[in-house]
Design a protein around this nucleic acid. Structure first.
Lengths: 256, 256
DNA sequence: CGCGCCGTTGAGCCCGTTCAAAAAGTGTGG
DNA sequence: CCACACTTTTTGAACGGGCTCAACGGCGCG
């Protein structure tokens, strides 16, 4: 149980041409020559250990990233130490984009949850890139809009759902996102996740203590089994039901 | 006090060429000939009374809108009637954009809070439009990213802030957005808003009763004076302070 | 072995809720 | 102008979900 080691080693990103996560990511809609251009555009590759800050709110920094391997999260800290996790990042997720517009000040922080590797793109080039490749701009807009829809769903969770519903929702979402990424799906409804109950608390706006109690009640109801790195959802439909889970939001683009 | 009538009459949108709110909106970065193209792109103009639904979650509908006059909001309803307001819309706000990608199912609803008028753009055309005018695509991406930042700030509010802080934050935000839109700023720190305490409750994730009590305490602390349609913020800096208000987020693009 | 991190459990309190009702403001028709 | 219905705001009283404070147990690691 809790083999953190398994999460600790992230693999090194390949050339964009051969990248296995590209199909999930921003640069999905490219043809061969375009991918080469994207590869030139990539400024560097970064590898970080577990728990390292990628960027911090308040910093001026215009880089954007594609998470290649491992987990990370976006979060916001209030002045007195309270923390809200805004989004969990999985391999293929593109994050940190903010154009040269505005002040360029980061509104939130990012940090790794496991050992992680990512591709770094310097912010300055996006404007030119999108002028040359409008399809990319449209794709980015679509991704941002989808992020928006997810954030809205989370707003409804934090604003109007009970602790049980919120945690059910989060577990359902993570379960779904992880499975989506692994092609073949094992029948036992188990996925591996690196989250502590503290993380869950910071994402759901609850205290770790109450997260613990709520998980206990979900376990007793045979809806969620979470021990160590292993999340099991015996009956996804039942869980989705009490979570009020909206499947539509997490669908992929049908056109591009 | 409470002259709802003043809010009830929305003016009719003009030709895009002469539109006074365009400078706030999606089509800001256009030159003269481009604006003409946008005007052709606009499919119709819509006028609605107070409290009318613009679109509903679950619907399949690909139109997008620019609010021309009046107020509206985006919201989400849970199965049992709980409601979460996701965003208040003011004149110039562009909303309802979702490309032909994905299922095209609306993830949230929109409704007018006052009599309102808006310009309607059919969804199908955006792809072509952005291919021709990448600057527009970039602008839309920037706007979506900014919306995202605001939504994140709201997530932190709902997840980690107390009732007093949440309401202080919302009042501060609305106050700021309204003032931003009116060029010259009267010195009495008053703005006109059409929100009921029920709306505030649905936006902050509280009950109307508790909103009332919290507003009372803010009034006694001389931080927020809200009666009828009139919101007064005697000391914006003090209010921003207890709200943990982040001014950066609401800044305008410096480059395009 | 000792230390730190994480998960677990208990007891009591408080913020925000629920239920209930009255007061104030708004709109309609006679 | 008043009577009436309806919506919005205000207040009271009591409940409860989630929080705070506190302690203990398990596991990995030096």
């Amino acid at each position: 149980m809790g083999k953190k080691k398994a999460w600790h080693e992230a693999s090194v990103p390949l050339q964009c041409e051969e990248c296995p996560v590209r199909k999930l990511a921003l640069f999905q809609p490219l043809n061969k020559t375009e991918v080469k251009a994207a590869h030139k555009f990539r400024s560097e590759v970064s590898m970080l250990e577990q728990g390292k800050v990628i960027f911090r709110q308040g910093e001026i920094c215009n880089e954007a990233f594609t998470l290649y391997d491992g987990w990370a999260c976006l979060y916001q800290d209030l002045a007195d130490g309270r923390r809200q996790i805004l989004k969990f990042l999985l391999p293929g997720d593109f994050f940190g984009f903010q154009t040269d517009f505005g002040t360029g000040v980061r509104a939130h922080s990012a940090r790794t949850l496991t050992g992680a590797s990512m591709c770094v793109f310097s912010g300055g080039g996006f404007l030119k890139l999108f002028k040359k490749k409008p399809a990319l701009g449209i794709r980015l807009t679509w991704m941002t809009a989808q992020d928006q829809a997810v954030a809205h769903e989370h707003l409804a969770s934090l604003g109007r759902r009970s602790a049980k519903e919120r945690i059910a929702y989060l577990m359902m979402e993570i379960f779904h996102r992880v499975r989506e990424r692994q092609g073949e799906q094992n029948k036992d409804n188990k996925v591996s996740i690196p989250l502590t109950q503290d993380h869950i608390a910071d994402a759901t706006g609850l205290t770790p203590i109450h997260v613990n109690r709520t998980l206990k009640s979900l376990r007793q109801a045979k809806l969620v089994e979470l021990q160590g790195n292993e999340l099991q959802v015996p009956d996804p439909d039942a869980l989705a039901d009490i979570a009020g889970f909206n499947w539509d939001i997490f669908s992929k683009p049908s056109v591009i």
